[in-house]
Design a protein around this nucleic acid. Structure first.
Length: 711
DNA sequence: GTAGGGTTAG
């Protein structure tokens, strides 16, 4: 029976794009030729058709105009009004003789400038007093209001309203001013109050105020609408944000660029890329020259989608319009490059930022450090680190922690220790739970069990909260050192401190089970697993029994796997296979590999072309890889015997392991190949790549008894 | 937090 949870697609091969392109965007038009054009978007604009005269003269509401764009979208490619948005941004769909109706006002709403208030200091101080009052009750606040130093004139009231927080106090003051009846409540009072409510994520109250404005005939302006829209956005009420955006058109208020880019961000966060682009294009066609913030919104959207072509498009648009990115835009685009897997282009973009005379901030550097760490670009990471110090670029504790994580990614233990000590000495960047976790990760993956345990003890002494990732790193490290008693202790401390075991921790316990050499140790670890995930523990015990039928295993396996986070499913299966092999249950290991394959945990394990069949075991554990090799050799043996057609070349890939601490998968695989006397040879120029020719394979089959290769 | 839009960590 198909289990929907099991058929969830797995992201198996985290394809890396090891680009090292140093081309700089704003100065290299050739770069555009290196990449394929983005798939053109098609758009059907009902409003761009030539409508009958009478209808074209009738003003169409902007909401109506936008509808085909935002709601019915852009899929109707049969329309002859289709436009290739991205490949031809300034295309012919705007008929100059009949200019399209504007979708936004090119003039940004002006803010009133307030004149100097001689009572400013008094009023500020009074507002501070209201803010800092310990008694949060309404009565206390109302009593404190009695002491207002000057009468609440329009200007005075506005000044106080602007300085109040949190939102409860702002709202109380706003309502109090209303009861004073000294002057009519204008839009600006609502706007200021709504802003405070937005900090408190009080969308419902904001909406009530908006309705009050409507019923009292107070004008809602662009500032009101943009505040409402961004409040809804912050509360993830995207439907509400869109509703209010449409409401402004129907009530005849034209958005300016601030409101417009706010709504672009709403659609961007909804992942509605095509809608964002059509709105963007409509704005452009109205004569809008977007500012850097708009491009930050677009850049982030493409980054979230991992859409490198889209990021490139953003850069091209900015360049062609002469919009100079600011640091925030660069930061967003750097993040986006990271998510699109383009470390080389991120590096170029960073150099461009420097050349443009901007100074990177903490977020810039955090983004880049993270990218270099994940790409395992040690040289670039260390070079960047040097530059950070020599230029005294700003640091904060997130950047410190990101640097520590980078050290973990690159296996830079000494550098991490220096950094960690520096954090301890610092004023504002004391090591927190993240920092300690990074250290546990570094010591754990480096196999430095003594220091990992010292770190663990230090955390207890300093009252730093242990989290599930730290626990996992520690247990993994203790497992490799075969310190099974300590595993039980660490596990119990973690649970006592409120750590909730997740699937990664269970996978880690499972991998430790596979390292145990006797039943005593195994039971120590299994008792942890029993607490963390009883069903998984049951499955391990079932696999160790003599009797269970394949059907029984299949049922239990499916039940466990379907309740497991997608990214932990393959690791679970790998460990279960290892446990079976270690216990001498090879047949059961083959059954598990079969089940894993059946449930889609090993896509891409086998690849066939006319000339080459290959086995890719890079995402398997050592035991699972051996099982897969045996299985494959058995299959090939039978195919040779049946004299079926074979390709010229056979290959197996173990990967060379770019990580400093990566297990020697290639070595184990090589020795297993030798044990089977299989005809695979590791390529001298390509580590982790094994090949055999058809001739090798056929002569090997002819020289072997079936029992050698079949399990 | 100068009435409104955009950016940092397993």
């Amino acid at each position: 029976m198909a289990n929907p949870a099991i058929s969830t697609p797995l992201d198996v091969h985290l394809t890396k794009h090891p680009d090292s392109n140093r081309a700089i965007f704003f100065s290299s038009p050739q770069l555009t030729q290196l990449f394929p054009r983005r798939k053109p978007l098609t758009i059907s604009c009902s409003s761009s058709k030539s409508p009958p005269k009478s209808e074209s003269e009738k003003p169409k509401s902007l909401s109506e105009q936008l509808k085909p764009l935002t709601a019915t979208t852009l899929s109707d490619s049969s329309s002859d009004n289709q436009t290739h948005l991205l490949s031809k941004p300034k295309s012919t769909w705007v008929n100059p003789s009949r200019p399209k109706r504007s979708v936004l006002s090119l003039q940004r709403q002006k803010k009133s400038s307030h004149s100097h208030n001689p009572q400013l200091r008094d009023l500020r101080r009074f507002a501070q007093k209201l803010n800092s009052s310990q008694d949060e009750s309404e009565d206390a606040f109302m009593a404190a209001l009695e002491e207002i130093p000057h009468p609440p004139s329009r200007e005075n009231a506005l000044l106080i309203l602007n300085s109040l927080k949190p939102w409860q106090k702002t709202l109380l003051f706003f309502n109090w001013v209303k009861t004073q009846n000294s002057f009519p409540m204008e839009t600006i009072f609502y706007n200021v109050t709504m802003k405070s409510l937005r900090f408190g994520r009080q969308f419902q109250v904001i909406e009530e105020l908006a309705h009050e404005m409507i019923s009292n005939g107070v004008e809602l302006d662009n500032i009101t609408y943009s505040t409402i829209i961004t409040s809804a956005k912050r509360c993830k009420l995207f439907d509400k944000a869109v509703d209010w955006f449409e409401k402004m058109y129907t009530t005849g208020v034209m958005p300016d660029e601030v409101t417009y880019s706010a709504i672009l961000d709403v659609y961007a966060q909804l992942g509605k890329v095509e809608e964002v682009l059509s709105l963007y294009e409509r704005g452009r066609a109205s004569g809008w020259k977007p500012d850097a913030i708009t491009y930050a919104v677009l850049g982030k959207m493409f980054g979230e989608a991992g859409d490198f072509d889209g990021i490139r498009y953003v850069l091209q648009e900015m360049r062609s319009l002469g919009v100079q990115p600011n640091v925030v835009v660069y930061n967003t685009l750097l993040e986006a490059m990271g998510k699109a897997g383009k470390p080389g282009l991120a590096r170029s973009l960073f150099e461009e930022l420097i050349e443009s005379g901007l100074t990177p901030n903490e977020k810039t550097l955090t983004a880049l450090v993270k990218i270099y760490g994940k790409a395992r670009w040690a040289r670039d990471a260390l070079e960047l680190w040097d530059r950070m110090r020599s230029n005294s670029w700003p640091m904060d504790f997130i950047l410190y922690n990101t640097l520590l994580n980078m050290c973990a990614d690159l296996g830079l233990e000494e550098e991490a220790e220096k950094l960690f000590a520096e954090m301890k000495r610092s004023e504002n960047s004391r090591p927190d739970s993240w920092s300690y976790t990074a250290m546990l990760n570094i010591y754990g993956s480096g196999g430095n069990v003594e220091k990992a345990m010292e770190t663990f003890d230090e955390m207890s002494e300093r009252g730093v909260q242990l989290n599930v990732m730290g626990t996992t790193c520690l247990i993994q490290c203790l497992g490799k050192a075969k310190r099974f008693d300590d595993i039980g202790r660490v596990f119990n401390v973690a649970v006592e401190k409120g750590v909730k075991p997740d699937d990664r921790l269970c996978g880690c316990l499972l991998s430790v089970v596979s390292l145990c050499e006797n039943v005593d140790d195994e039971n120590k670890v299994l008792s942890c697993l029993q607490q963390a995930n009883p069903k998984l523990d049951d499955l391990v015990k079932l696999l160790q029994e003599e009797k269970p039928s394949f059907e029984a295993i299949k049922d239990e396996f499916r039940s466990v796997i379907s309740n497991t986070a997608v990214e932990s499913r393959r690791p679970f299966c790998n460990c279960l296979i290892d446990i079976c092999r270690n216990g001498g249950r090879h047949e059961r290991a083959h059954e598990l590999l079969y089940l894993g394959t059946l449930y889609g945990l090993y896509p891409g394990l086998h690849n066939k072309t006319a000339n080459e069949w290959s086995l890719d075991v890079r995402s398997l554990s050592v035991g699972a890889a051996q099982t897969a090799l045996e299985e494959w050799m058995g299959t090939l043996y039978r195919i040779v015997q049946r004299k079926e057609e074979l390709p010229e070349l056979f290959s197996a890939q173990t990967g060379a392991g770019s990580h400093k601490f990566a297990q020697g998968m290639a070595n184990s695989f090589a020795s297993h190949v030798k044990k089977l006397a299989a005809p695979f040879r590791q390529c001298e120029d390509k580590a982790g790549f094994f090949v055999a020719t058809r001739e090798d394979l056929v002569s090997w089959v002819q020289s072997k008894a079936p029992s050698v290769v079949t399990v």
